[in-house]
Design a protein around this nucleic acid. Structure first.
Lengths: 225, 225
DNA sequence: GGGCAGCTGAAGGCTTGCTGAAGACCTGAA
DNA sequence: TTCAGGTCTTCAGCAAGCCTTCAGCTGCCC
């Protein structure tokens, strides 16, 4: 498992490198935001451990730029203060987890392993369901070889359903994942987009890949409908 | 998602109950270690939020006894001090995550959701009972390969019985788990739905998977009937 | 036979989901 | 800046079908 540690405090960075290496991780180190970002985009890491207080480019920015660049590495932020602001903001910029300094090494390793497990189980970039193909990386969708143009929201909904093909996914979860919104948002928004999606990927082909699971949400048929 | 909060500080416990309920969780509360342990073993929760400083039986003990009892619920510990010892010990006794007091509500919700995701992915997804298959994730039910459409309530009842296949489950418990209701609700509601369930998964196949245990509730035959 | 526990058909009320339309919003070009 | 094109959200009406309640019934046990 490949880990990048971005931490300006040399002593701590070195200690982490040694400790994590001893735990079986493959560890690289960067000492400021810019070089950290460069390394993270050039190489592919499973997890990036990211200090927030960094010279040059702070942790939040590195994090959001990484996400903007399409990185799907797990990001664990190290927050110096333990105020609420830090943590909420870290999650907002796309971090997967965070840890307040000072932290114990045992805990860091536990979190890294948990994170790696989560990341590892992330769905592949291309999902094939019968003659329906959803390519998350290319952001394209084809049915029986025919390319189907989708709006950003439509694709995001389809993509999310495709990652969990065969499973029922609640509107609430779709709202959270696609809209990044709280539980008070209107589920009708999802319904409208699902409706539009069906009109494009199902109706013209006489199929029914997007199934309604009454009371539970929607399910994308594993065989494409 | 069902959450049990074990916290002796009444004011905090109440605030958590209200807040988490508003976030869409189903929340129960216990105020000391013993009753918390009892509730957690009697009912099945997705996540247990566990204070360490508890009267009667402290959080570590509740945690390790829960694990000893075979509980697979996610356990999030609330540590009062933010020393390393607490956290390492929490992880040792089988906790999945912890949070130092004082914590922000936003962060708690984020952690709970993260935990739920992790737990959800390790929970058994399908229950196979002879030729009867109940798939919780897909929310589908098949008998001898034939898909059987069920209404939300019917599925929820079946799912609950399936999770405890072979055991007698009381109507009261079904009411609590499926209907999320108090003990004053009408058990006849359960009877009506069980009746409908039998008509779909048993009668057409000449089977009797859903058995009546007079005076005690219902039992789903471990071999599918 | 009496009493109790459980079963089930029917029906009204109500929730849930779908969809067309309208206006807000965003983005890029002139 | 304004405009045009497209996208997103909100709203309201509608249809489907689910849930609960009730009442009468069966069958078990004493």
């Amino acid at each position: 498992m490949r880990v990048l540690v971005v931490e300006d405090e040399r002593r701590l960075a070195l200690a982490l490198k040694h400790g994590l290496t001893a735990e079986g991780f493959t560890v690289d180190v960067a000492h400021d935001g810019l070089s950290g970002l460069a390394r993270a985009t050039d190489h592919s890491y499973d997890v990036v451990v990211l200090d927030i207080m960094l010279p040059g480019l702070n942790g939040y920015r590195v994090c959001s730029r990484l996400r903007a660049a399409g990185s799907d590495a797990g990001i664990l932020m190290l927050t110096a203060k333990d105020g609420e602001w830090d943590e909420a903001e870290a999650l907002d910029t796309g971090a997967d987890d965070f840890l307040s300094k000072p932290f114990s090494f045992v805990v860091l390793v536990a979190r890294l392993n948990a994170l790696a497990r989560r990341i590892g189980s992330r769905a592949p970039r291309r999902t094939v369901l019968g003659d329906l193909v959803v390519d998350s990386a290319a952001r394209t969708c084809t049915r029986a070889g025919t390319a189907i143009p989708l709006t950003p929201r439509e694709f995001a909904v389809l993509d999310h359903l495709a990652r969990r093909a065969g499973e029922a996914v609640s509107k609430r979860e779709i709202l959270e994942q696609v809209w990044d919104s709280g539980p008070d948002s209107d589920p009708n928004t999802v319904e409208v987009h699902v409706s539009a999606l069906r009109r494009k990927i199902d109706t013209p082909f006489g199929r029914a890949a997007v199934q309604t699971v009454r009371g539970a949400g929607y399910r994308l048929a594993a065989d494409g409908g």
